[in-house]
Each structure stands twice: as C-alpha cells, then as structure tokens.
Simulated scan of single mutants.
Amino acid sequence: MARQQLQNLTEPMYYILLTLTSPNHGYAIMKKVAETTNDRVRVGAGTLYSLLSRFEKEGIVDCIGNEGKRKIYRITDKGMELLLGEHRRLISLVEDGNKVLKGDKNG
C-alpha cells in the first residue's frame, strides 16, 4: 500500500484516522465514528480490524498497548500527514463546489 494507493481515503479510513488522533481501542473507534457522523458512517468490526491491520503494516497507526484484551491504537506522524492531506483535499473540493453552486463568477 504505497502512498499513491492512499491518495483518496474512503470515509471509513478518514474517520478511523480522525478518531485515532487520541489513542483508542476498536470498540471505542466504532462508537466514535458513529457519534462523529451522527450515525451516517458506521464501521463494522471486519472493516475496522482489516483497516487497522493494513494501517499498522504501513506505519500509519501503531498499537501502543493493551487495555485488558483490547489493543490500543494511535495515529503515527505518517498517518497524521495522510489525514491532513486528505482533509485539505476535501476542503478544496467543497470550496470548488461552493464557487460553482453559489454562482461565483471568478470560480
């Protein structure tokens, strides 16, 4: 999974990384994504753990310990760079859309 493959994150990827700006375990990540999006985005356990495994292999998140049987994950510097890049990309999309949809003649 090279950087080129992750240029555009899916919604679950984006929200998982956003949630991991504070260390969390899997169940808490699923709850936080649902809360943050008012249940618009729900991440199932299979998707979550598949993405966490993939992110961990690529150095995007780290497992930093255990809370009982639960693994605690956090975003790495590489993951934060990826998240911030995606955030900037999404802002650009919205700004471009606003120019067109709101009739900005300079857009």
Rank of each mutant, 00 (worst) to 15 (best):
T36P: 01
Y49A: 03
N98W: 11
K105V: 02
A34N: 11
L9C: 04
D39I: 01
S53M: 08
E35S: 01
T21P: 01
K99D: 13
L93H: 09
R89K: 11
M80H: 13
V61W: 15
N38Y: 15
V43Y: 08
L90W: 11
D62F: 12
G65L: 05
Q5G: 06
L48H: 03
G59V: 04
E67G: 05
H87P: 01
G44Q: 11
L82A: 06
V41A: 03
M80G: 02
K32G: 04
C63W: 05
V94L: 13
R40T: 15
L6H: 12
R3H: 12
V61S: 04
P12N: 07
E95M: 10
K31N: 10
I72R: 11
P12L: 13
D77H: 07
E35F: 01
L51A: 03
K99W: 12
Q5V: 08
E35H: 01
G44E: 13
R89E: 10
R70Q: 09
Y73D: 02
M13R: 08
I75M: 09
S22K: 14
A28N: 00
I72S: 02
V61Y: 14
D39L: 09
S53A: 07
D77P: 08
H25E: 04
N98D: 09
E11R: 09
T47S: 06
M80V: 11
N38H: 08
L20A: 05
